[in-house]
């Protein structure tokens, strides 16, 4: 494994971990590789040696055409892989529980709701009453819990330098817990293919100090743009965030789309739409005939929606 130059300003992957989850994943990768080597290296070494020793042109080992089994060898052949797999199984089990994406990484994690659209992400901060498109700002050192869904096809959100991925599925929610241990900038993306704009569906993640975070939230709270069912329907049109700015009439604004939360129940309403509606080509975001004017969101349900956790 060759680490790319560490001078890169933006952490692209878990090879430059920015948080404990990614760091442990990297460590685990190295451990698994080493353990597997116990079984693989003998093959890599023995292949050329045996070929050389028993080459027909000039052999140095004895010819034993009927040799077909040997107790000791047989038990080694089964024993070594069994041993390696047992060791690995233990570490697999432990690590899977330790890095469970549903496990909160601190008390009272910052709650963020995420809606995946073609080809952008909406990050809703219910407590701050704001929403950002294609930008995620989190305070350094604070546990964060994302609750994800999508309003089109299945997507998968990954911020490699901080945490692995989790699917986002329509009518369902999944959770992703993480923590950014230091300040910096990382790339997040959708890894599940979703069509033509898929490769552009990336977002910036900023891990900033608590003060910066608060300042940033204040600034967004002052935005004149509100996330309501109407603006949401426009955002749901296929295209990148930059392209969405046109339909929102904010083409001249630079940086991510910043909105106040006009409708605090919007996340629940998006989830609810697949429970109560029979979708049509016009109302289904992601469909070629999608029409924002014909895609109303239902009222928020009384009870909270189902959680994916099985």
């Amino acid at each position: 494994m060759i680490d790319p130059p560490s001078t890169l300003a933006i952490a692209e992957s878990f090879l430059q971990p920015m948080g404990p989850v990614a760091a442990e994943q990297l460590r685990h990768l190295k451990l698994v590789t080493l353990l597997t080597m116990i079984a693989v290296v003998p093959v890599l070494v023995a292949t050329p040696l045996i070929l050389w020793r028993y080459r027909r042109s000039k052999p140095t080992g004895k010819y034993r055409p009927n040799w077909e089994s040997n107790r000791v060898l047989e038990s080694l052949m089964w024993g070594v892989p069994i041993l390696v797999v047992t060791l690995m199984g233990v570490s697999l089990w432990n690590m899977t529980f330790r890095l469970d994406p549903y496990k909160e990484l601190g008390k009272d994690p910052l709650q963020i709701h995420v809606i995946g659209l073609d080809w952008k992400w909406i990050f809703i901060y219910p407590d701050e009453g704001v929403a950002l498109v294609d930008e995620l700002v989190v305070p350094e050192g604070r546990a964060v819990e994302l609750t994800l869904t999508t309003d089109t096809v299945m997507q998968s959100l990954r911020i490699s330098a901080i945490v692995g991925q989790i699917y986002a599925m329509p009518a369902m929610t999944t959770k992703l817990n993480f923590l950014a241990a230091r300040q910096g900038e990382a790339t997040g993306m959708n890894t599940q293919f979703t069509g033509n704009g898929f490769w552009k569906q990336k977002f910036q993640v900023f891990s900033v100090s608590q003060e910066e975070y608060e300042a940033r939230m204040k600034k967004v709270q002052a935005s004149d743009l509100a996330l309501t069912a109407d603006t949401y329907a426009l955002l749901a049109v296929q295209g990148t965030a930059e392209e969405a700015k046109k339909s929102l009439n904010i083409e001249d604004r630079r940086g991510p789309i910043e909105m106040v939360l006009g409708d605090s129940k919007i996340f629940q309403r998006v989830l609810a739409r697949y429970m109560v509606e029979d979708m049509t080509p016009e109302s289904q975001p992601g469909s070629p005939s999608y029409d924002p004017a014909k895609s109303p969101l239902p009222a928020a349900p009384e009870k909270p929606m189902m959680d994916m956790k099985m």
């Binding site: 992957s13 878990f14 990614a22 442990e24 994943q25 685990h28 990768l29 698994v32 590789t33 597997t36 080597m37 693989v40 093959v43 890599l44 292949t47 690995m88 697999l92 690590m95 899977t96 330790r98 890095l99 994406p101 998968s156 990954r158 490699s160 945490v163 692995g164 991925q165 989790i166 890894t191 599940q192 293919f193």
Partner: peptide, 24 residues
């Protein structure tokens, strides 16, 4: 030689923890 490498990467991917990063 080459299949051994493929097996190694398969074992890596069998770890859910690592698959969270390497899936897709």
């Amino acid at each position: 030689v080459l299949f051994a490498i493929g097996g190694l990467s398969g074992v890596i991917l069998a770890n859910p923890t690592l698959d969270y990063q390497l899936h897709n």
